[in-house]
Design a binder for these strands. Structure first.
Lengths: 156, 156
DNA sequence: CGGGCAACGTTACATTGTAACGCTGCTGCG
DNA sequence: CGCAGCAGCGTTACAATGTAACGTTGCCCG
């Protein structure tokens, strides 16, 4: 599986479709349920490569599911994050579809302040450097978050 | 200047005092004003090595400054962060005194879910690894945030 | 066939963050 | 000197984000 940068134009419909299919496969394999609601939330998050806020998701969700309320969305987001299908972008209180769904990994993002897009990277050396730094401080790392903000190639 | 880990017992009163003195020096040198209000907020943030939320700071501030309101605190925090005197811990919507005040650097934290303390580290190799990863993606990095959560040596 | 649990509905509220506007005191400049 | 302009702060109101708590439904498994 390859993951070209999101800054490269691509067929985003296919991109979303593949993500949903993969999510379904992963959930089936784990014996957890990707219910229609959760699938809809995942699809909404995947609609763009810009992190989506919970209330943004809520607004979208309500278009097809009038009864949706904040807890509806937060529960779905919590589930999706727990299963590694989306990531939370801490610096924006927002969520982004995960490009490496299924394989546990640290979350590393390049967040463009120009276009708002966030690109997930999976840099092993960076991951290793984090592990070393934690080890040096005798710290047991559980969750590693790297968020780099700045300007992407096209917005420079 | 050396910075022993916060997990090592130390004279925290002196720790705070030094931070305030350094802040004053830095602001003087830059021609910006560390007003009494800002100083109080800085002191409150420095009181512990646990990140302090804005409303936590507000509660404390109101004990000596009854008129304080949310904007009061947010303005002070914004100023202090802009001057590099405190860091925002994104994953907690909270603030922490900066141990390297004055020297611009990326913010890297080890956040213990046991005791709640956050320790800032200034790992050059980690910083370099981030720079490399960004460069590889032709991304112009401006702000680099690393937040590693887990268990500190004492809480393991 | 019913106990227990996961998923979701529903209401209300808690927490976090901002917009907008006014006042005051200092500072630089004519 | 006098005042224009701005930084700093006060004040009110509100926007945005996140959660607690409890009820309902339907399914699975004993």
């Amino acid at each position: 599986m390859s993951h070209p940068p999101v800054s490269v134009p691509h067929d985003h419909g296919a991109c979303v479709h593949e993500a949903l299919a993969r999510a379904q496969t992963i959930c089936d394999a784990r014996g957890v349920k990707l219910t229609p609601l959760r699938g809809q939330v995942l699809e909404i998050v995947w609609r763009s490569h810009k992190p989506a806020g919970a209330y943004e998701v809520l607004d979208e969700l309500q278009k097809v599911h009038k009864a949706a309320r904040p807890p509806t969305v937060y529960r779905a987001l919590e589930f999706l994050e727990a299963e590694g299908l989306i990531h939370r972008i801490e610096s924006q209180n927002a969520y982004l579809g995960c490009i490496e769904a299924g394989a546990p990994h640290s979350s590393q993002f390049l967040i463009c302040r120009g276009c708002g897009a966030a690109e997930e990277i999976a840099d092993r050396e960076l991951d290793a450097a984090i592990a070393v730094a934690a080890k040096r401080a005798r710290f047991k790392a559980e969750r590693k978050t790297v968020e780099i903000s700045g300007l992407c190639a096209r917005c420079t």
